[in-house]
Computed example of a mutant assay.
Amino acid sequence: MSVHLNHTIVEAKDRDGTAAFLVDVLGLEPAPVYGPFRVVSLGNGVSLDVVQAGETVHPQHYAFLVGEEEFDEILGRIKSRGLTYWADPFHQEPDRINTNDGGRGVYWSDPNGHNLEIITVPYGGF
Rank of each mutant, 00 (worst) to 15 (best):
P111D: 13
G45W: 08
V39N: 03
E69P: 00
N100V: 13
S41H: 05
I118S: 09
V46W: 02
L65S: 07
D110G: 04
H58S: 15
D72Q: 13
F126I: 07
V39P: 04
V33E: 06
H114M: 10
V50G: 09
P36Y: 10
T84W: 12
P89K: 00
L28D: 15
L83H: 02
V33N: 05
D14K: 00
A31R: 01
D49F: 04
E69H: 06
S2L: 12
G27S: 10
P122H: 12
I9W: 05
H114F: 06
L22M: 05
T56A: 14
R104Y: 14
M1H: 13
D110W: 05
Y62F: 06
Q52N: 11
G43Q: 01
F90G: 13
G125M: 00
W86K: 03
L65T: 10
E69V: 05
P122F: 14
H61F: 06
V66G: 09
L116T: 00
E93K: 06
G76D: 13
L26Y: 08
I97T: 15
G54R: 07
S80N: 09
F64Y: 13
D88Q: 03
D110M: 04
G76W: 05
L83F: 04
Y85S: 05
H61T: 03
N6K: 00
E11A: 08
S109K: 01
G125D: 10
H114D: 15
E117G: 06
E69I: 05
G113A: 12
Y62G: 02
G43W: 01
A12M: 00
I9F: 10
T56K: 08
Y34W: 15
E55S: 11
E73Q: 12
G54A: 15
V106Y: 06
I74M: 15
N115T: 11
G35F: 13
V33W: 03
P89W: 07
L5D: 10
S80Y: 05
H91I: 09
G45D: 12
V50Y: 10
M1N: 10
E69D: 14
F64N: 12
D101I: 03
N98R: 03
R77E: 07
G82Q: 02
N44G: 07
E29C: 09
L22K: 00
A63N: 06
S2H: 10
K13T: 02
V23L: 02
E73T: 08
G82F: 00
K13E: 07
A53I: 02
V66M: 11
A20W: 04
L5M: 10
K79F: 00
E93R: 08
F64M: 13
R96H: 14
G45Q: 08
H7L: 13
K13L: 03
A12K: 02
I9S: 11
E117M: 04
D110R: 01
S47N: 07
L22N: 02
E55V: 06
